[in-house]
Amino acid sequence: MTAGGFDSATRISVGQALTAEDIAAAGLHADEDVARYATRLGDDALILSQRLSWWISRAPELEEDIALGNIALDLLGHARSLLTYAGTAGGKTEDDLAYFRDEDDFTCVHLVQLDPGDFGHTIARQLVYSLYAYELYTALSHSDDPTLAAIAQKAVKEVEYHVDHAWQWAMRLGDGTEESHRRMQAGLDQVWPFVDELFEDDDLTDRLKGVAVQPSSLRPAFDDAIRRVLAESTLELPSVPQARTGGRRGEHRESLGFVLAEMQSLARMHPGASW
């Protein structure tokens, strides 16, 4: 318990946790490769956060609106920490990286870029991403890089809840009405072509052995978990061809341009604006 504690349901007390500000103030200096790796993970979290926040005011119920908003904010927190750390390599801030990089400098996977579909599509994407991120941050908690390890240790607790949220909804939609089952399965079929990219190793992850997580090493645990949730939800593992990858090399889908335009326009029109 924090000093002073809390004695009512409305008293606000901020728990001790690593923040982007802590990382910025620590005087760290990430090396180039570590920064590139942190940028990848940060870009995934940032773009997915932006995609999820589309639901705010559009979710089926107010309560779900807030749940998705909370998850989007958690992801934004991961992105802020990771991009702040990545920025220490070249004297840049999290905002420099989020708002003033162009499309081909982003290195997020295609899964997080996909246009928002219906609620089934969103739950399918959240399920896939959260199960992947849970394994990723669990492994990254043991990274030789202490900052990445600390970011991962904080993130994994939040992502555990994101897994639970998506899992609960997959079960209810998959094993719900005929219409909800149809939409949940359709959402899964739509996001599935973008699963393999999450688990692709490349030169960078090879070079960063011990610091970065080899994405391919996460696949067996992901497959186990996804099989369990699909079985519980009466859903089927999609058998669809995999899409072309390339997000990590800056080769993106058309949709990323629209996400960035919306996300970056204010900061670019009014550089340094604050509120």
Binding site: R11, I12, S13, E63, A67, D164
Partner: peptide
């Protein structure tokens, strides 16, 4: 909430987001 399990989760999001 649609059921008790989801109600606990919604409650977590609505009423405990500031560490209450």
């Amino acid at each position: 909430a649609p059921d008790a399990t989801m109600a606990v989760r919604n409650a977590r999001d609505l009423y405990t987001r500031r560490n209450e």
